[in-house]
């Protein structure tokens, strides 16, 4: 791992790309520490003159923003944060576990047909909005609306095609003979997968988990239509910071968005060393 020197042209292009990519992040973070007067000032204020943490305080104490004469925030974000944490973690675990089983099943025990994986993916070929309403109707008939069970079920189902397809590609990369060698050495099929397949595609499992977690963490449509009073998630809560008196509370929204970024960045940082590919190098000839 030695650093490569960038050519000047490449450095400029990369710098531009980085600027474009990171600008929204910069703007969100800045807005999160702006006092209400700076939120939609014209001309725009880039760096707040008086940084404040009032937006963050307002997330958990709706009255706090009152100090700036802004009112109308009805609800603390605590419930939404815990709702997101709960729904995303459980749904991601479900999605990745089931996806792993189906990925191994399709790759190793399928008949080689391309139809099954396509059928699995077809669940994602509809716009979520098109299936959200039917789901609300079905769920209200079985009492799953406004419950985490319902939300988790739909999150797991909606991300399952992605986890299956991503994990499938990692399983395909692993020569099947390596796990077959374990079977010959005396492992049952199940144990061969547990002791050989899964450890060897660990990097892929981490990457998939992160990706699925991001999908669930930022999901809005299903959460919006399925939550009334019992459940909430961060994206839904973000949309609630619109007041009749003060308009949209941009700073508070930004504060919640910044808070929502933290776990993702933390996860990404923690697993990056596991994301390296080439885990199987050396298993086979050349």
């Amino acid at each position: 791992m030695h650093a490569k020197k960038l050519s000047p042209l490449l450095a400029v292009v990369m710098g531009l790309a980085l600027a474009v990519t990171l600008f929204p992040v910069f703007w969100i973070v800045m807005t999160a520490i702006k006092p209400p007067t700076d939120w939609n000032a014209s001309p725009a204020i880039w760096i707040p003159s008086e940084p404040t943490h009032i937006n963050f305080l307002t997330l958990f104490d709706p009255e706090a923003i009152g100090a700036y004469g802004v009112g109308g925030v009805s609800q603390s974000a605590t419930k939404a944060v815990w709702g997101s944490v709960r729904a995303s973690i459980i749904a991601t675990a479900l999605s990745v576990s089931i996806g792993l089983l189906s990925a191994i099943g399709i790759t190793r025990y399928g008949n080689g047909s391309k139809i099954a994986p396509l059928v699995i993916l077809s669940g994602r070929m509809f716009p979520p909005a098109a299936i959200a309403v039917p789901f609300v109707i079905i769920f209200s008939n079985v009492g799953l609306t406004d419950s985490y069970v319902g939300l988790i079920a739909i999150y797991a189902a909606a991300t399952l095609p992605f986890s299956t397809w991503m994990l499938k590609s990692f399983v395909e990369d692993l020569p099947r003979e390596v796990e077959e060698a374990a079977m010959i050495d005396g492992r049952s099929r199940l144990m061969a997968h547990l002791t050989v397949t899964i450890p060897l595609i660990r990097g892929g499992i981490f990457a998939t988990t992160l990706f699925i977690f991001i999908l669930n963490w930022s999901e809005f449509m299903f959460s919006l239509v399925l939550s009334y009073t019992n459940i909430s998630t961060i994206p839904v809560q973000l949309a609630r910071y619109v007041t009749a008196t003060a308009g949209t509370l941009y700073g508070v929204q930004a504060a919640l968005a910044v808070l929502a970024m933290v776990p993702l960045m933390l996860m990404g940082y923690l697993i990056q060393s596991h994301l390296a590919r080439g885990m199987t190098f050396g298993a086979i000839k050349q």
Binding site: P175, E177, V178, E180, A181, A182, M183, I184, D185, G186, R187, S188, R189, V196, P199, L200, M279, T280, F281, G282, A283, I284, K285
Partner: peptide, 20 residues
């Protein structure tokens, strides 16, 4: 019969060593 119960040893064409 599963492979593990057949009491055969096999060397694979591509070797299939455990890389880890």
């Amino acid at each position: 019969w599963e492979p593990k119960n057949r009491n055969v040893a096999m060397i694979f064409d591509n070797l299939a060593l455990y890389p880890n």
